[in-house]
Design a protein around this nucleic acid. Structure first.
Lengths: 353, 353
DNA sequence: AGCAAAATGATCGACGTATATCATAAAATG
DNA sequence: CATTTTATGATATACGTCGATCATTTTGCT
């Protein structure tokens, strides 16, 4: 009942341990005949390499790095907290983690940071990326030197990373639309949307998904042209306030991007008969707004699951074993009743200097 | 930069390896003075025990068991699939998993199964339990023999398990109510509820949470007395059909328990102007019903996360290390747009014999 | 002081794998 | 057939910890 060792395999295959080892770690200089015998023995005995012993032997340490956009963006602070928190518990497994700040959404800065990684003696990286061909050169170089690369939250050019971990923003937008549609219960309505920037791929995708569902399933609702906010709370406060005081026929707000504190401030100032409100990302602000009933829904991308998956993925890539099962990652709907206790949300602001 | 070994600690503390080892694995017969010195050295060097090496040395294998209710219940089939799937990838870590079927919701059967576990030479168990004092005896005996015990999905008597992994059913009910309230957009309405059994603690809690929120925040809605279904699809089909054909003023259905296929069948038979529908647990049936727009929402308890957490928890308990970060577990809201791809949902029915 | 009990040191052989060296055996080449 | 490749075997050391054993030293107690 105990699992077989490589010695057992060698014996069963009728070869020496050395030869079995040559096959398993394909070191070459082995006759095809022997390879087959070993392979068969592996299959017959159900041999699985003991990764713990292997890593112990080669004294393996994993040096991981995360490239995360800087700034006061509450969402990325939350991601950072999750990474740090996970990292604390990973030293047990000989894993060291480094969070590298990158100037937010600048292709040049990102390109440079990726190039820098090559010097840094790193085994695996998760990058909050951009779909820009400029990144392909440094990414290719990085991967050639044996570094595992995955995209996180925002994808990299597909051929230049091993995996992408993040939600489908089209789905996120569709989900927001579905909830907004439901909340109108068949009545007429007009939805004021807000976006940070139409160049941001994730914003565009969310809006697209949103409009698709409203058009298809809620024809009695109108989606108004998005107001551009640059994710700036001040801009949002101003714009939302204007809409509210105009006593327009707007029945719902959907903020595709960030800057929710401004939106909440505007609503707080005019609480009477506010529109139905959907925003993205559960952070200290939006959580409090939910509790205060200033907004109705938060669509979240579960950064805790994302970070969890990122680590599992990187380890699997580095150990050359296949992926363990991981929780599914889908846009999650929060209302005031199903909020997680997660303290990492609330300390987000405090920790970001 | 390499992490210190116990030898390093011993040296730093000015004691022999043997003494350091006595402290770390508290084997006793060590002077307080030495204990302190070693503790200090551990803190100073940041020593963390190499679990891989430790397990290798003691040739540790974890024998885990899951006690899961039998029957064709789609939800538990899904749980079973997740366990099996996870188990496949855990042999790498020398973990063997056994799923033990228990006659559903029978205290006697559960008591017997728990007693049997003592013979079974198991290191850790996750039990879909009941809050019944009858279980306390066998549970105490089990834990005395060094077995780690956690409750899964449904809790055990609190003093007799190390942890509980499952959602708060009150929260689940509240969440369902919030969504149902929203979907009425301030209009009048009456909600027909269905429960399997009022003795089932989870059903009662969900209903309680549901009624609480409706009463507090949606006073224009009426919650009708629950119809008892015994989780039987046939009963549900009959009852729901009757309500529908009576052309009553019912605006929403909330099924607290199982047997959704019956509810869906009734709705499918009378599709015109159906009520708003909320059910629990995403399984093949309910997923398809969402896609077909026969129901509106599914509140799910994320069995994938639950199983993930259960394994992490058991390993942490057995290794005597502290818990790694795990994704939060909250009732999750699914609509037709944010459904997970998870193939384990769909094969659920097929795999159950 | 004398003696038992408690504490400490020194050291060994596992665990399963990686990685290396060196000698020998088999196969391919001309 | 002689010679060079190529393949195989045998064996050693290291990784960090656990669980021993045995000898020795220190402490506590009367």
């Amino acid at each position: 009942m105990v699992s077989p060792t490589l010695s057992d395999v060698a014996q069963a295959a009728g070869v020496s341990y050395a030869t079995a080892d040559r096959v398993i770690n394909n070191r070459g200089n082995v006759a095809q005949k022997s390879i087959d015998k070993v392979r068969e023995a592996v299959a017959a005995l159900g041999y699985v390499r003991n990764v713990a012993a292997a890593n112990l032997s080669r004294n393996r340490v994993y040096r991981l790095a995360f490239l995360i956009p800087t700034g006061t963006n509450a969402f990325f602070n939350r991601i950072r907290n999750h990474i740090r928190h996970a990292a604390e518990h990973l030293s047990v497994d000989r894993i060291t983690v480094e969070i590298i700040d990158v100037s937010a959404f600048s292709v040049d800065a990102l390109e440079e940071s990726i190039a820098d990684l090559a010097q840094r003696d790193v085994d695996g990286v998760a990058i909050v990326g951009l779909q820009n061909p400029l990144l392909e050169g440094p990414l290719a170089k990085l991967r050639e030197s044996g570094v595992a690369v995955i995209g996180l939250v925002s994808d990299l050019p597909q051929k230049f990373r091993s995996a992408y971990i993040g939600i489908d923003n089209m789905v996120a937008g569709r989900t927001a639309a579905r909830m907004t549609g439901m909340a109108h219960a068949g009545g007429l309505g007009a939805i004021q949307t807000f976006v940070g920037s139409m160049e941001a791929r994730d914003h565009a995708e969310r809006l697209q998904g949103f409009c698709d569902v409203i058009a298809a399933d809620y024809p009695h609702l109108t989606v108004l042209d998005p107001i551009l906010t640059k994710d700036d709370p001040a801009v949002l406060k101003e714009a939302a306030g204007a809409v509210l005081s105009a006593r327009s026929n707007v029945t719902a707000f959907y903020n595709v991007g960030a800057g929710n504190s401004g939106l909440v401030a505007a609503i707080g100032a005019a609480p009477e008969n506010r529109p139905f409100c959907v925003v993205h990302e559960l952070v200290a602000h939006s959580k409090q707004a939910l509790i205060d009933k200033h907004i109705d829904l938060v669509i979240d991308q579960r950064p805790d699951i994302e970070v969890n998956r990122a680590f599992a993925m990187l380890r699997a890539l580095l150990d050359e074993r296949d992926l363990p099962p991981m929780p599914d990652l889908m846009p999650t709907i929060y209302v005031q009743d199903n909020l997680p206790a997660d303290p990492l949300i609330d300390i987000a602001e405090a920790q970001s200097r």
